[in-house]
Nucleic acid binder design. Sequence first.
DNA 1: GCAAGGTC
Length: 632
Amino acid sequence: MDPFYDTIIIAEKPGVAKAFAYSLSNPGRPKIISINRITLYSFKYKNKKILSFGVSGHILNFDFQKKYNNWKNTDPRTLFFIDPIQIVRKGSWKYYDTLRKLSQKTNHVILALDADVEGESIAFEVMNIMKKYNPNIKFDRAWFSAITKEDILNAVDNLTKPNPNLANKAFARMIVDLTIGAAFTRILTLMIEKRSNVLPRGKFISYGPCQTPVLYLVVKRALEREKFKKKKYYSLNAKLTNGIKIFNAVYYKEKIESFEEANSILNRIKNTSKATVIKADYTTRNILPPEPLNTIELERRCSRFLNIRPQETLNIAENLYQDGLISYPRTETTKYPKTINLIKIAKKFIDYQDIGPFVRKIISTKISPRQGSEDDKAHPPIYPLKNLPKDKIIQKYGRKGWNIYNLVVRHFIATLSKPAVIEKQKIIAKIKNEKFIIEGLKIIEEGFYTVYPYDKPSENILPYLLPNDTLEVIEIKIIEKETKPPPYLSESQLLKLMKKYGIGTDATMQDHIQTNIKRKYFVVDKKRCIPTPLGKILTTSLYETVPEIVEPEVRGKMERKLQKIAEGIVEPNEVIQEIKREFLEYYDRLRENEEELSKKLIKALITVYSNEYEKRVSRRYQNYKDKQRKRR
DNA sequence: GCAAGGTC
């Protein structure tokens, strides 16, 4: 018998489809069936026969018609004047085919995609595919802000209609990104290939409205570093003691310009044996626990605390999520939803590592979790779901997997913990008339640091002194110092800047870093981003002619224009044309400077690809000689 | 052979 479903629910990922099935199924549990190796859930809800399953993100993508995809025969400029077409993504045919089959088996579909513009655009992809095979289907939208039973029931009881404005914003973004990226990547690559064969087969010079501003941020810092001129300066250090402990005191002026000045101060005080305390400040300060974890913070902390690269962090987190150890790892949210039972989750960790007793104490008191302010309305912050022993986790996910899992668990417990209390200690002592400063730090209450030692400050406890107390001077000396250039940008700082400028999304930020590495524009060494000569030349020479396409603000400006589509203020095509016109102007300006630009790029390319270049030349020479030999 | 965005 061919089953007919009253309703088919389509989610963005299998996990959500499963949550819908288990939240709604009544009576009984959902039955699992399989089409094209996709898992689907069949169940009853309010006496209706329902089927749910997840497509994995987008099913369709934009591309140019085939005839425009030959780089050599197509002037990249023409890409600004044609409309890309939607195609089925590689690997998405099984979802396409499943939608086609199922469109014959229902007249009602609930679009349960994520509550954001990408989710809405996937909803329209689903609708357009299914309508083609069954024009009678009625479509509703389930809009839910957390994947909990309560939210799911609420969404299903309050269905809305899909919003084309949101979807069109996402489609417009896809179109302009493809057009701009392809046009600039092709022209940059072709201008090199026309003049040189330094680019190995399959390599190209790319441009993208996310990747290039990321490179700019890295190069900008490297140039500041290169331009930096070191300067010598002097400081005075004094060793003082109260008879019990020895303290390091530094001269109150951080920098003394000349040795002579430092020396004259030293001469004035060097025979003094006593220092007098003139001020002693002990101020306590609360340090709040960290905010609930979102993707970018997970990546930044794993980079800083664990020295794991963002891309690997997200990969491992995805695996931990797939196996049900942690919640969904791609989220902007830093605020626990009201529907989440924090105590229940914490209870799972009452025997975790060495922090069990601490966790027991937390759940026996009234907790008020630390809350952030970001909410993507689709996913909760990242938190642990299961307590598994260390050796099991290491066995399956490696040491890095354990370290990341352990961070997620401890971070979660930390957000439920009390603030730490520290005491900042500052003593000012006078040697004759010269002021010296001693600084100390004492941890009064460990608070969340008990479970979260990663950025716990180190203690340096000073005794409690009072004004007019006397200290012995052990020695005073002049220290010669040098001003330091700014360090290369760390990956953690880079992520923070990307967020500040709105470059990329939680799920893609690490991709944009990775693209630059793949293109040999920069490398990451010891957590720091160091540009290659190619990356530097590409950025600086593009910046000289078309700063507008390199500046970190590019993406944000584009985003604001696209946002008007979502708000229904401007027609999508109007925005698409406006952005295309703007970038066409930049494109033309770039071409005017093609000669100079390509010369510079070729020079830099040789440094990056010299090995490969030489190998290729020698291989060709070898071929030539082989042929000659055969002829003889 | 292009981009950036979903997700695996």
